[in-house]
Write a protein that binds this DNA or RNA. Structure first.
Lengths: 229, 229
DNA sequence: GAGTGGTCTAGACCACGTT
DNA sequence: ACGTGGTCTAGACCACTCT
């Protein structure tokens, strides 16, 4: 019959959304709230800490807890592997390797990943299909300095995405979303017209300062990346 | 000299990235870890709980804690107001109202926001500039059923973005990223060529099942939305 | 200086899911 | 049935920062 941290959190959230505690307002301190809810301070603390993590309130020692003026609310996107993304839509997944080559990292890639000069890289291009329809074109670069075993791997049946996930962990990643015009090549791969606008995701990953891989994923026209929060 | 939950978290994370605990591996239980680190179980619990939140580890009662097979790592994006986004780049922000009208919600909007029939909405279009250069075109729809006071608000100097944030809280939001081809109109507003690929963000927000607003933000060519995780 | 949140502790009880 | 994580408690000390 005592209040849980979920109860406390929900009640505070309700008071905020209803306007009882307006943006910028100062909330009671943890001791008073604990008293009011009839629970321990640690319970209130957890509730408030989660609200702070979610960007609903702002906390500062001595200054207390305030409702954020501009709820800097954050959206979370899960970064799925393509296969899972497609199969979740109950579509049949198909993968194809388009090209494979080994070369020294071009300058743009060296700059992007902070690679040493003459670093050998494996360059792959692949296609992912959903129910036979082009879904995504993948342009993948893997550092052979960090992952020499990638040279032996068979990417004709298993996508580099899945191979990497099960082979090597990473400590840092950078992700960027943008829009690209379909070139003649891309249009052909994705079965669309040249000039269409394509949603693009670029991701670089590192393991302790050492670059592992860079990938550019280009989606078929009309693709949307969605989330709720 | 005792281990903090940050120490514990960092150490576990290190053991995972180094491969000492491989994907799928079962970690010791909380009591043993607390013993090993010389701290209380609650401390280990907090460290592990945060790792679970971040998708590094998976926890189940009785089954214990395992390193995730496919790290379902999540990226977090903050959803800033345009002014803040521009000023953060040390650019001068300028805002302009392009058009304003009141009408009944068109069908696509009613469907999208689950609005009642004949719901009056305020339709605004605006431009945001960074150092005088077109930065973003905003296509904004506000429910007058929920926010009648929007009809009186002066949007000629203050953007609807900022007005809404300081006026009304929200409980749920849906956000979608995509790519759009620049139409003649958009090209003119954004000072680019027709046919360019433009990065687009659409967001709908509700307050307890009641739709508040829908917005489509179209960015100038080349815009990238970036984050690290 | 004093008030606030940040964290740790040692113990306890409970909920869940595997066995 | 039993082992695991999930949560709560009451108390304590500390770190920050506002005044």
């Amino acid at each position: 019959m005592t209040a849980t941290f979920r109860d406390v959190k929900a009640d505070i959230m309700a008071k905020i959304t209803v306007g009882e505690w307006a943006p910028g307002a100062l909330l009671p301190n943890e001791i008073d709230l604990a008293d009011a809810y009839g629970c321990a301070r640690a319970t209130v603390n957890r509730a408030m800490r989660e609200l702070a993590d979610e960007g609903v309130v702002e906390r500062r020692r001595k200054a207390g807890t305030r409702v954020r003026l501009s709820p800097v609310r954050q959206a979370r996107f899960s970064i799925p592997i393509v296969r899972a993304e497609i199969e979740e839509q109950n579509a049949e997944y198909r993968y194809a390797l388009v090209s494979r080559s080994i070369l020294n990292a071009p300058n743009w890639l060296r700059a992007r990943l902070q690679l040493a000069q003459n670093c050998p890289v494996l360059h792959l291009t692949c296609m992912h299909y959903a129910d036979g329809i082009p879904y995504q074109f993948e342009d993948r670069w893997i550092s052979l300095a960090m992952l020499p075993q990638a040279e032996e791997a068979d990417f004709s049946t298993l996508g580099p995405n899945e191979w990497l996930v099960s082979t090597v962990p990473f400590s840092d990643a950078e992700i960027a979303f943008s829009a690209t015009v379909a070139t003649a090549d891309l249009a052909e791969y994705l079965g669309c017209s040249q000039g269409e606008a394509l949603f693009t995701v670029e991701r670089s990953t590192w393991l302790k300062e050492n670059a592992i891989t860079f990938v550019r994923q280009t989606f078929r026209p009309g693709h949307r990346m969605t989330t709720r929060y």
